[in-house]
């Protein structure tokens, strides 16, 4: 399967309120596409629509040649895994129990896990450096550890595609960068197709191969960080004056917001 995530002319509405309009975007295997935009632009809605938890009004979402909206949750969960926004749920479960629930789509309705399930869980926990936490309860972990556990759960799903919804929101600098480095590394190693909503534009610049910029439910721009993260575009969309510099060594665009008039 050529696992290209292909979103075409997607529209989503809550009642009469159209929150996404004619979104088209494709994400290739081994590629991290960052989803950016001001609050309320529709980033989370897009991720929820692609993951199948809200119904679309129009358009199509394909993964390779499979129409995701025609699949059952069970089939979809073998193609696409989601790392939710950091928030505490299922806190009474141990880390290992949580990661094992990533195998739901492979287990029967009694939840009996086989050797392959346990093998995949071990692999996912090793990759995310959570093996030593196996018997700890989720609620006892730090924010950074919790996010790694949810990444491990998504990896346990063994899917070609991964969606992440602002996974670094509540993390400190160290955990933000280590988490994003891990996602980047896993994407390259396993040829994953990754769509990730992010707030911090400098992180987008460092970790994303391409950027999709949403504004008021519409796709404003798609391209490399250099193409999208320009002074005009960001100042305009975020209604905040910014200056964009080029990283002296790596040539990433670096965004410097300024309202004090230093610009």
């Amino acid at each position: 399967m050529v696992a290209v995530l292909d979103i075409r002319d997607l529209s989503v509405a809550y009642g009469r309120n159209v929150v996404l309009r004619d979104i088209s975007l494709s994400v290739k295997p081994g590629e991290v596409v960052a989803l950016i935009g001001p609050n309320g632009a529709g980033k989370t809605t897009l991720i929820r629509a692609v993951s199948g938890v809200i119904t679309k009004r129009q358009g199509s979402i394909f993964m390779g040649d499979r129409d995701l909206s025609k699949l059952s949750p069970y089939q979809r969960a073998r193609i696409l895994a989601v790392v939710p926004q950091a928030r505490q749920l299922g806190g009474a479960f141990s880390v290992e129990q949580t990661v094992l629930m990533g195998r739901t789509a492979y287990m029967n309705w009694l939840g009996q896990a086989g050797e392959e399930d346990h093998e995949q869980v071990r692999f996912a926990m090793e990759k995310t450096n959570t093996s030593h936490l196996a018997n700890r309860r989720i609620a006892e972990l730090s924010g950074g550890e919790q996010q790694r556990v949810f990444l491990a759960r998504a990896l346990a799903q063994d899917t070609p595609a991964l969606l992440l919804d602002e996974p670094t929101t509540h993390l400190d600098l160290k955990h933000q960068t280590s988490f994003l480095s891990l996602v980047h590394q896993l994407t390259r190693e396993n040829d994953l197709t990754v769509l990730m909503a992010l707030h911090d534009l400098n992180q987008v610049s460092i970790y994303a191969d391409r950027v999709a910029l949403l504004l008021e439910g519409q796709m404003k721009a798609v391209g490399t960080p250099q193409e999208v993260l320009t002074e005009e575009m960001i100042s305009d969309v975020y209604q905040t004056p910014v200056q964009v510099f080029s990283h002296p060594k790596h040539k990433f665009p670096l965004i410097f917001p300024d309202q004090r008039g230093l610009n």
Binding site: V53, P73, A77, G90
Partner: peptide
């Protein structure tokens, strides 16, 4: 226990 949305994303009907 992870909420209905995550449960669905994990593959539960």
């Amino acid at each position: 226990q992870f909420g209905e949305e995550q449960a669905k994303q994990l593959g539960l009907a």
